[in-house]
Amino acid sequence: MIQKLLSLDRRWIFLIIAVVVFVPAILKIPVPVSTISNSTQQLYDTIEGFEPGEVVMISLDYGPSSMAELQPQLTALLHHCFAKDLRVIGINWAVFDSVLLGQNEFDRVARLHGKTYGPDYCYLGYKPGGLPNLLDMGKDISSVYPKDVHNKSLTDIPMMKAIKNYDHISLVVDLASVGSPPFWINYVYGRFQQTLALGVTGVMISELYPALDAGQIVGILPGLLGAAEYEYLIQDANYTMEGGDGATGMGIQSFLHVALILIIVFCNIAFFIDRRNRSNIA
């Protein structure tokens, strides 16, 4: 019996997961976040300390595959920046298939805060090249991006007239699902002492804590939970009334985590009973 349970067809597990994810998703059970991870709070505090008019650059280094985790982070960050009257530049340094995702979200959130393209924010998109682009932006952004996504020359974008390179940018946030953070840390922080923060997928969180401890970055948003925490912080400060995808996701995620913990506990109990039975027989 125990043996059978331990070697259960994995499709039964799949079915359990499917049920646990669909039921709370349909019932829309809300689970609010009420404690904030340190790394999220640090990023929030950094942005909160900025004066109106300061510039934040957000690099979207993720594709549609990780959109579920990082897009809510982008939304929350944009709400915070626009509500605080900061100016925002969007780029896609490493990944080209998120240009449209980012651009649409920038336009949507900007509209909610009454911000206009050009003076308040702009979107520069993707350019092939990799590392040379990161380094050259330290000298002159327009040498990498002569034009934005709308094919408009950078000199025709009001905010970009005063922003030449990293010297004029207060914070760069890299939202990453690929291996881009080490490049931003080693070359942009290392070479230009640019203040840097990260929003990353769950898989990457742990490996970036050393950089946070060493002061190379000022904060990390940990996956969808980071988005939910950030949404809580900006709603608490009355920066936005819009409920984000992070908070909605937390309800479903909580149930899935409960299911997974129960599965692990259950299979361990079964494992120990089985081991004891075997040693008894032997």
Partner: peptide, 26 residues
């Protein structure tokens, strides 16, 4: 301990991706 923590976070990441798709379907 480090890898255990990484596993815990990985679970969260993978689960979030599934949540994204399920929310889309619903």
């Amino acid at each position: 301990v480090g890898f255990g923590a990484a596993f815990g976070n990985t679970v969260m990441g993978r689960v979030s991706l599934l949540i994204g798709r399920v929310t889309f379907l619903i």
